[in-house]
């Protein structure tokens, strides 16, 4: 121990951190979540290979049977696959948060003089960056396989923004689950048990009219169907305003219900 290890003066200002400081903390903590990828390349594979594999498998295995040709099917299914991938990706927020809570990292952060909301905000920001990467990859692979944009760059950007907004809202569900369960693996189990049936009972992979009547009733109100329709409208063409507005309403409802629940659960747990 050298004498220089310790001197009295604390570094941070005496008052509670303001918005600017909180944003700086958020950026630093987002950096932390992203730099983890460097040491855990498996995560990058998760973010990249799984979505690409889904596109390839569905296009070439089911494409001809459902739409007559892989090309036509890709045009129909890619927007929905992007939605499914985004919903799965929201689970990483809860997984990482639960990891921090159970391993004690969250307590270390909370004992620092940083903005109270920055640990959560940093994680969500990092996960949004990961989302953006996955979406770009899916659109890129789709383009190579012959996916054609119907509304040009404007449609692409619109789809991008809508998807990130919806994911941000849906990630509050993930935060709530991450706070409530005892270990990170349970977040993944939850994701599998809920998101899998939710995305398959939508019109992501199969057109609604090819399903049994009783199922069609559910498929038509499933928010995944609505978001998939919105993305189809923006990326391929067809009705845009209706599904986009409905998707945004869903996003607002999800955030309004789950954000307070998640924050309350977090306050009770720590």
């Amino acid at each position: 121990m050298t004498a220089a290890t310790l001197t009295a003066a604390p570094l941070a200002p005496a008052r509670r951190p303001g918005l600017a400081a909180g944003l700086r903390h958020t950026l630093t903590l987002a950096w932390r979540s992203l730099v983890q990828i460097k040491h855990n390349p498996m995560e990058l594979l998760d973010l990249s290979i799984q979505p690409v594999m889904f596109v390839l498998l569905f296009t070439y295995v089911f494409g001809t049977a459902i739409s007559g040709s892989p090309g036509d099917y890709l045009q129909f299914a890619l927007p929905g696959i992007i939605v499914q991938n985004a919903l799965f990706a929201t689970m990483t927020t809860g997984f990482g948060l639960n990891n921090d809570l159970t391993k004690g990292v969250f307590d270390r952060l909370r004992a620092l003089p940083i903005a109270r909301w920055s640990p959560l905000a940093g994680r969500i920001l990092a996960d949004t960056v990961k989302q953006a990467w996955s979406v770009s990859l899916l659109v890129g692979v789709g383009a190579i396989l012959g996916f054609r944009l119907g509304n040009g760059v404007v449609g692409l950007l619109g789809a991008f923004v809508l998807l990130l907004a919806f994911s941000l809202a849906a990630s509050w569900i993930s935060v709530l689950v991450g706070v409530l369960v005892s270990e990170p693996e349970k977040v993944q189990i939850f994701g599998f048990m809920v998101i899998f049936p939710l995305t398959f009972t939508s019109n992501v992979f199969v057109p609604t009219d090819r399903m049994p009547g009783w199922l069609q009733n559910w498929v038509e109100v499933n928010p995944v169907t609505i978001l998939a329709d919105a993305l189809r409208g923006l990326l391929v063409g067809g009705p845009v305003a209706g599904p986009v507005v409905q998707s945004l309403i869903w996003a607002v409802v999800l955030a309004a219900v789950f954000a307070p629940l998640a924050v309350r659960a977090l306050r009770r747990r720590v």
Partner: peptide
């Protein structure tokens, strides 16, 4: 703070 409940990030 150091202890059972305040830990470093293992992946970093």
């Amino acid at each position: 703070l150091t202890g059972q409940y305040a830990s470093v990030d293992e992946t970093l």
